[in-house]
């Protein structure tokens, strides 16, 4: 089947059991996407499928034929870090670094969701079409990404820096 990974189309032959996560890690040597639980409970495997954040561990790769997948390896532009990657460093938004790619990919997908007005469980006014990226909104929306080192504050700080500025523009 044909699948696009970080802008590059590739032909892969797969066991239908292979998850998108294992396709990336074990077949394409793209280890940036992490396996934390393999059961949809930690968010470490978050990638973007056509811009939407999903859990690659619960995604059978065959279901993503023809789709465009972005992983952490595709974020840096010509060696220059994505602004959110830099913000994670600046705000010390990680310690061991294992949940980090998932946090970053999730945040990028999340920002797009806020941008198009998707509400969250903490949004007071469901009818509102613009939702300010408050700390509570970000914390709720990032709750699918576990961090055990306890870098939560730095992660939200980094996301706030990048996407609050964007929202203000």
């Amino acid at each position: 089947m044909l699948i696009t990974i970080n802008g590059q189309g590739m032909e892969v032959a797969l066991d239908p059991r292979t998850s998108l996560l294992d396709l990336l890690r074990e077949h394409l040597e793209l280890h940036g996407t992490k396996k934390g639980c393999d059961q949809g409970a930690c968010g470490a495997c978050t990638v973007l499928a056509d811009g939407e954040r999903i859990l690659s561990c619960l995604a059978l790769a065959v279901q993503y034929e023809g789709r465009s997948i972005s992983t952490v390896e595709g974020l840096a532009d010509d060696g220059r870090l994505h602004p959110l990657q830099q913000a994670f460093i600046d705000h010390d938004g990680f310690q061991c670094g294992y949940c980090t790619p998932g946090q970053i990919c999730s945040a990028i997908g999340m920002a797009a969701e806020i941008g198009r007005g998707v509400p969250s469980a903490v949004t007071a006014d469901l009818a509102a079409t613009t939702i300010p990226p408050t700390r509570d909104e970000l914390r709720e929306r990032m709750s699918g990404n576990l961090c055990r080192c306890g870098a939560h504050n730095g992660i939200i700080d980094a996301i706030t820096e990048i996407y609050s500025a964007e929202a203000a523009e």
Binding site: G40, G43, T46, E52, R53, I54, L55, L58, S106, G109, M110, E113, P119, S120, A121, T123, R141, S143, G144, N145
Partner: peptide, 10 residues
Amino acid sequence: LSGASGQIRN
């Protein structure tokens, strides 16, 4: 919106 996570809901 109270269920699961953003990724799973997607």
